[in-house]
Design a protein around this nucleic acid. Sequence first.
DNA 1: ATAATAAATGAAAGCGATTACAAAATACAA
DNA 2: TTGTATTTTGTAATCGCTTTCATTTATTAT
Lengths: 343, 343
Amino acid sequence: MKNKNINMTIYDISEKAGVSIATVSRVLNGSNNVSAKTKEKVLSVVEEYEYTPNLFARGLGINSMNTIGILCVDSSDIFLAKAVYYLEENLREKGYDSILCCSGYNQKNREEYLNLLISKKVDACIMVGSSLVGQTDKENKYIKEAAKKIPIMLLNGYIDAPNIYSIMADDYQAIYQVTNSMYQSGIQDILYYYNSNSYSGRQKLEGFKAAMIANGVEESKQNILYYSGKSEDITAMVAELQEAKKKGIKFQGVIASDDNIALSAVKYARNAKLKVPEELSIVGYNNSFIANCCEPELTSVDNHLEVLCKNLTSTLMDVLAGEKVAPRAVFWGELVKRKTTAF
Amino acid sequence: MKNKNINMTIYDISEKAGVSIATVSRVLNGSNNVSAKTKEKVLSVVEEYEYTPNLFARGLGINSMNTIGILCVDSSDIFLAKAVYYLEENLREKGYDSILCCSGYNQKNREEYLNLLISKKVDACIMVGSSLVGQTDKENKYIKEAAKKIPIMLLNGYIDAPNIYSIMADDYQAIYQVTNSMYQSGIQDILYYYNSNSYSGRQKLEGFKAAMIANGVEESKQNILYYSGKSEDITAMVAELQEAKKKGIKFQGVIASDDNIALSAVKYARNAKLKVPEELSIVGYNNSFIANCCEPELTSVDNHLEVLCKNLTSTLMDVLAGEKVAPRAVFWGELVKRKTTAF
DNA sequence: ATAATAAATGAAAGCGATTACAAAATACAA
DNA sequence: TTGTATTTTGTAATCGCTTTCATTTATTAT
């Protein structure tokens, strides 16, 4: 009754089962050199006393927690939370547990938390949120340093160093295609509205620029607006758009770096009494549930997060199994057309 | 260069510092019976070799990970994700790490994951998401069982059993007040639209019923609509409302059990060409960022999640310190008025 | 039946920390 | 100076498991 298992040790089990602790250990770890009879007896005793091995003692022996660390910038971000959710699920399926750490947008915390995870003896670390990956070598040094100890998986980020593996959506390509389609459909005054300088963010921006240039609009004539406030403050985003308009920037199309930004464009249009999509076309990114919520419903890029996460997990398993693995895999996304675009 | 610290043990440090391992251990654990000189010497060696103690060995001795388990129904739910975020932050401040497990809405998983956390040697477990708490004793047995081993903290749930502590918003009170205010303002045909049978969900529903009864509307004449689909599928929620209307249910006010549901009411109004709030008043719950996104902006109940989480953490610290602690604390929320109500 | 081989089991040595207890060093008092 | 009290340090047992190696038992071939 009173937490039998909590104080049970392998010695107790071995005694009850009438075998040595080595045999018990073998049974529990699935060694095949145990006779069926013995195995059964041991298991029944284990069952009866609800015995669970002590993690620490186990770890001391094999030096692994069977646990993957997940370092996430901000788990209250819809997109990232979803990623964490998928990853946890996939890892569990593979028999791994996960520890989540949320660093916030602060370089010092990142380093600290990554080291924390390592000190917790995680077998690998997944970094979720491309803003974890900096632009300079110096910013990324802590990641490379960590990679000397355990494999690092980057979701939507890339660093060229040993033991670091990247699984990413082709954000460049996605925005390039969207921009191109919009332009070709006749909407030539396009505003690219973004709010992140993360790795993905930079990819998207480059995609936009390249597509515009491919259509003959040189960089100096491109409309690009950067929003630096909080990602939930839609009102502030709208204000920025109005400001831009006042300054004389013209646009019949807005391509946004995420759905929140796109939502602000929808609100802007409503305030300005612009018909969507007739007078203003809007494309979001991430295809989050917001896309379905807003009015009219938002056309948005879906980068197949679930697929990315599944792939990341299986790649990680390969890495842990010691197999050779490509350091980088890129997956294409897809434009989900709804009511804010007509092309 | 090559991961000095990874193989360093307390023995190495003791040797380099010219003291015994016991002394090193004392220094690292802040025992005061060490001379300043020795302490300094040891610390400098520790520093130099970037030594970090082995978690497993340490755990074997003290049998604690200094870690709190967080069991969350669904970390991709905006509200819950925010809770997890606050909790992690607060715990970190107190010197604790956290392991997050997302069980999904499945009873078997819950049990499994809770046990997993315990087997990972967490010092306590926080259960986030009131749908983790069932209605029947049988459903909650696994929690009570777990509470025999470690303290269990419930965020927005209540179970009367030893070693289980509840921190909750007064959902009953909040909905009661809102309903009452709406009714008193002259809107007497109120629809309560909800989507969850969780502990909180039941509290809210009761609050609505009680307020209506207090205003002379007996239960059989109350309008209550339950949505059983996915919490992100706004379109389906709208359809339910239209269905209800068709069936002849009249309402000039909608009180929703969360902001998503409320959002669907806003969409419903737009489709039905009803002016908000003139012809239809709408109140949401949670005051999530959605409230600011939708058009018109949503009046919503804010239950001060941040305060709840802060309080939960400090209560937990008290519990872990062995202090007597009230098994239940209830906090009042607040109605944040925006554009979907006029009262 | 016997030798050779394979399978099953057990004894014991770690893994790297904590901590009770003993011993040594230092401080203080008479 | 000597004895006592106090602080500092070290020795060694312990935590509960994994795993190597030696030993015993079962299986197969001759």
